[in-house]
């Protein structure tokens, strides 16, 4: 049985004017199903680039990338959208909720693109909001919710399609310490329930929740400890 995520010699280069920037410079990495991984590094270390590749938001310049058995490089634009929709749940630092839209509708957003009927969308997103402790506030708009509550809505949205991988990019970056702890507790719980969680962070405290920490510098892995 192969790993959930397999990276072989991943290279990602960007052209910035006449300069070529090597964001990733030969990264090989396996992540098994059910792992709890923190990807660390300073700004510009390549961790965000890896995050984008693991989330199938971007394609590597060279190398191999298989996620859940799928060769991401071989997927066309529509197929890659469907793949993201079914396989990956995203949590962002800035929550990225739709303004003036209820928590329920925000959480249900990915299901619209799965083509589920309205009743089913409501049922599933309601269940996920209850799971993250927001069962009472499903009709609130983002502006009526605290930062922590907004991030819970975002987590419910990430979970609503039963993804294999939860990708969180600095999920506590916009939250205070107490709220951060609450949010991290949710990730811990989700991982215990079997979901593969990948955190991208530069905070050691957040990374300490994970059981495996991978540290990036200048586009290469400098440390991978469990």
């Amino acid at each position: 049985m192969s790993a959930l995520i397999e990276c072989r010699d991943l290279v990602k280069t960007y052209e910035m004017g006449d300069q070529v920037v090597h964001a990733l410079n030969g990264v090989s990495l396996d992540i098994e199903a059910g792992e709890y991984v923190a990807i660390m590094g300073t700004s510009g270390s390549g961790k965000s680039t890896l995050m984008n590749l693991l989330g199938a938001l971007d394609q590597p310049t060279s190398g191999e990338l298989r996620i859940a058995g799928e060769d991401v490089r071989a997927l066309g634009p529509d197929a890659v959208s469907r793949f993201r929709n079914r396989t990956i749940g995203f949590v962002f630092q800035q929550f990225n909720l739709l303004p003036r839209t209820s928590a329920l509708e925000n959480a249900a957003l990915p299901l619209i693109y799965s083509g589920l009927p309205h009743a089913e969308r409501v049922k599933r997103s309601m269940a996920r909001l209850q799971q993250v402790g927001l069962g009472e506030r499903t009709d609130h708009h983002p502006a009526q919710l605290s930062g922590g509550q907004q991030q819970r809505v975002a987590i419910a949205r990430a979970l609503v399609n039963d993804p294999k991988i939860l990708l969180a990019d600095e999920p506590t970056g916009a939250l205070d310490t107490k709220t951060s702890a609450d949010i991290m507790a949710i990730f811990d719980q989700l991982n215990r329930e079997g979901i593969t969680v990948i955190l991208v962070t530069h905070e050691q405290e957040v990374a300490d929740h994970a059981r495996r920490q991978i540290v990036f510098r200048d586009g290469v892995i400098v440390e991978d400890r469990s």
Binding site: G55, L57, P77, D78, S81, R82, R84, N85, R86, F90, N96, L98, L109, P110, Y113, S114, R157, N161
Partner: peptide, 16 residues
């Protein structure tokens, strides 16, 4: 723009 980015990330196709 951010909303569009989000929709694309969570599974919207370009046609959507």
């Amino acid at each position: 723009t951010r909303e569009i980015g989000l929709r694309l990330a969570v599974g919207a196709r370009r046609a959507d």
